[in-house]
């Protein structure tokens, strides 16, 4: 067993892990962050997407040790039931999901997209979400939700 120190959703966490443990397992099984979804487990589906220093990566495709010293954000770090993040609100309002299994990852990728290019076109949105598979096929609604999220975030920015 070796020591692992992670910064998850702005909190420092310490663990004893096996060196080969992957980031997704540590987040999900040890911290109970069930928003980290593991579906294919081999880098194809995007369900386990988290943000590492703000950039989307696959938590199933890296050792937990590789994430040390970086800021990890999971869907649990965005909003709460009573106080949703504007992206989450947009997905609810525009029905940007059906079963919801792929949604946490998609919302996190959306956060990175809107931070880097808020005025993305539908095709740019689609490209930036190309690493996510939605088995329900909610893609058109997902793209609408991202556009709505962009509006919401721009408005809240204006109000400030």
């Amino acid at each position: 067993m070796i020591k692992l120190q992670l910064m998850v959703n702005e909190k420092t966490q310490e663990f004893e892990i096996e060196p080969h443990e992957i980031l997704a397992d540590v987040l999900k099984k040890r911290l109970g962050l069930i928003g980290v979804r593991v579906s294919c487990g081999e880098g194809e589906c995007g369900a386990c997407t988290i943000l590492l220093d703000g950039k989307p990566v696959l938590a199933c495709m890296m050792l937990a040790k590789q994430a040390e010293g970086k800021e990890i954000t999971t869907i649990e770090g965005l909003g709460t039931h009573d106080n949703l993040h504007p992206i989450q609100e947009a997905f609810v309002e525009k029905h940007g999901f059906q079963c919801g299994f792929c949604t946490p990852g998609i919302i996190l990728s959306t956060k990175n997209l809107l931070e880097t290019k808020a005025d993305s076109t539908p095709s740019e949105i689609a490209m930036s979400l190309s690493g996510h598979i939605c088995r329900c096929g909610a893609y058109p609604k997902i793209i609408e939700s991202v556009q709505e999220a962009a509006n919401k975030m721009e408005n809240s920015h204006d109000e400030k």
Binding site: G43, G46, T49, L52, K55, P56, V57, L58, M61, M62, S109, S128, S130, G131
Partner: peptide, 9 residues
């Protein structure tokens, strides 16, 4: 090459 997430790793 692959997906945005893979390209970040």
């Amino acid at each position: 090459l692959a997906t945005p997430q893979i390209r970040n790793t």
